[in-house]
Amino acid sequence: MRQFVIIDIESNTVQPDGEVLIVKANPVKEAEGFEHLEQMFGKKYFNYAMNECNETEVFMLPYSEELTRKLIQLARKYEDGVFWTLNMSEFIDARLSTPNGSVSIHKSTALVRRTLRIECQKYIPPVADWEFKHKIVDGIKIVTFSATKTTVRDNLDGGFSWDSGDIAFFVFPDNEENMQMLNDSIKLEPLKKQFWEPDTSSFYHARISMTGPLGSTGHDLYISNELPENRILENLQDALW
């Protein structure tokens, strides 16, 4: 187990992990040369830095309000000798892209499990190829469509069911390979437990808002990594509608 003093906590949304907590912390080490004082006063003495430095380590954890409160409380108790104690086997080494470049992080294995669940999310694609929209956006040939994201459940009677789900939008390069994949997908039969399961880690993910008669609704947008997402996002109205 390792101990840390927390120097910064922030929530953020990153891909493909979703909403996360980014925690910066400095390692805590037992101070040397204080054995006499420890015997006299019965307390331990520690060394740690309270500012970001070369020893600062970055952790990424699943976001929750409860965890945020606990970390804030721990961050305030360092003067009492109470530190953030971690089992490092519950983290993996990873990289995080930031505006200032890529940084090394310790990523919670809970996030890895959550990402796997997200990547296995099932979709019901359009029912006919006429729902594919073939467009040219900023000189790029694309095909876009909406699919229904759903959760499939096994029932106690041996059958299965799925929820009504949410609409998500997908954007692919308009080429023969992708059209073959999409035409195969619309032949799937949900009543036979056949669902489309794209690997969403191969897409750029964003959240978009649509305004309708009942107000604004949020939707997932997935842009294939084969496309320059910035150019699609800059022309989103032409790309989707």
Rank of each mutant, 00 (worst) to 15 (best):
Y45M: 02
I136Q: 13
N230A: 14
L182Q: 08
E38R: 12
S224W: 07
F169I: 12
I22E: 01
H219T: 06
K44M: 03
N12H: 10
V103D: 05
G165N: 04
L156T: 14
M210S: 14
T217S: 12
C53G: 10
V20L: 04
D184L: 09
L188D: 02
K77P: 02
K133C: 02
R113P: 04
S64V: 02
F145A: 04
T148Q: 13
E177M: 12
G218C: 09
V20N: 00
K107A: 13
P173E: 08
T115S: 11
F160P: 03
E30V: 08
G139L: 07
A31H: 04
D93F: 10
F203K: 00
E32M: 07
F195T: 02
G18P: 04
A110M: 12
M88D: 14
W196Y: 06
T217P: 01
A110R: 14
A75P: 05
R207C: 08
A147W: 01
N87W: 04
A239V: 09
H219Y: 08
D238G: 12
T148R: 14
S202R: 12
N178S: 08
T85D: 14
S185C: 13
V28E: 00
I167S: 14
E57N: 09
L67P: 06
N225W: 06
S161F: 09
E19C: 05
D8K: 12
I136K: 14
T148F: 07
L240V: 01
E229W: 15
V82Q: 12
T144V: 08
E55D: 15
F34Q: 07
S11Y: 07
T56M: 03
R113V: 14
E38P: 02
L214H: 13
K24G: 00
E90T: 10
H205A: 10
E229I: 11
S216V: 15
Y222D: 00
Y123E: 01
W84M: 10
A128V: 10
G165A: 08
L21V: 01
Y45A: 01
P190D: 01
T150G: 13
K43G: 03
A75V: 05
D93Q: 13
C53K: 01
T148I: 10
E176R: 15
E189K: 13
S216K: 13
W84E: 09
E32V: 10
L74N: 11
W84Q: 05
F172S: 04
A206T: 02
M40K: 11
I124Q: 00
I9A: 09
M60Y: 02
N54V: 06
T68E: 14
I7W: 00
K24F: 04
L67E: 08
T68Y: 13
N155R: 15
T200F: 07
L74M: 11
K141T: 09
K43V: 11
R231N: 14
K122P: 00
M210L: 14
L116R: 15
